[in-house]
Amino acid sequence: MRRSFSYRVFSVANHLFLVLISLLCILPLLHILAVSLSSKAAATANIVKFWPVELTFDAYRLTIENSFFIGSLWNSIERTVLGTLISMVLCITAAYALSKENRVFPGRTFYSWFFIFTMLFSAGLIPSYLVVTNLGIKNTIWALVLPGAVSVYNMVLMLNFFRGIPKDLEEAAFMDGAGHFVTLWKVYLPLSMPSVATLSLFSMVGNWNAWFDGLIYLNNAQDYPLATLLQQLTAGIDMSTSSAVNADALKNIAQRTVKAAQIFLSMIPILIVYPFLQRYFVQGMTLGSVKE
């Protein structure tokens, strides 16, 4: 293919422009990392750009020594594992049933609309809040993992994937005397591992990032997941000063470097799963189009 001169000029400019945009996406993150690794003096003097000035790990040491932070880290892990597990079990079982035809599963249309309606209309914040309060699960981890456990969107993706699995396999399993439960467990699930992995990763990221439910359903800051704690810290309410152990240590460190360290630490799990996510999400987004 021949390329005109003007196209080559455009091409060079285009490459440069895309590099610039990519940098814009990543530089703020690098800046925070650099601040978190800089000394208090350098951070307050605003001389830190994208490389640490007077390299020190004080901010990280202080963050890790903070019992609030470690506690919330544990709360986050607990919530992420529990939340992902529950929502995947719900998603897979319901998607399997709904992937059957009306002939095999009378009531399928009713169930489908029952779920889809919740995508269109929600009661809103206050009524949901009142239900969770009246159930008596406020101030427990269940208030975080149960209300959002069913993701209708994930269910739709999963059921479309199940539909792509050849019917012959299912019939062979039934022929051998297997019921629905065994077929799901022994035939469908092993074949759907990539989809299950994709949806699990998305669910994990969602759980890790969720902060608002922690804010409204938990009264005790000690129960906060990391995202909620961080939100409260960056929103200006500083709880680390309330703990006597850290009051002295805080004098020696710029608040800004500690905040930066906390931000960066809570980003790490996402950065770790990101390469896996990236491998799957394009696939995941087109998951729905896999049809027989």
Binding site: A94, L98, V104, F114, T118, A123, S128, V131, L146, H180
Partner: peptide
């Protein structure tokens, strides 16, 4: 024959009922 399928959707139905539909009743406030 379809009973196990109803059983499989049941947990999700209960969750949605409790956390989505019951709040809709709360809209009366």
């Amino acid at each position: 024959r379809s009973f196990p399928l109803h059983l499989l959707v049941l947990p999700s139905v209960l969750f949605v009922l409790i956390f989505q539909y019951i709040p809709m009743g709360g809209i009366v406030i």
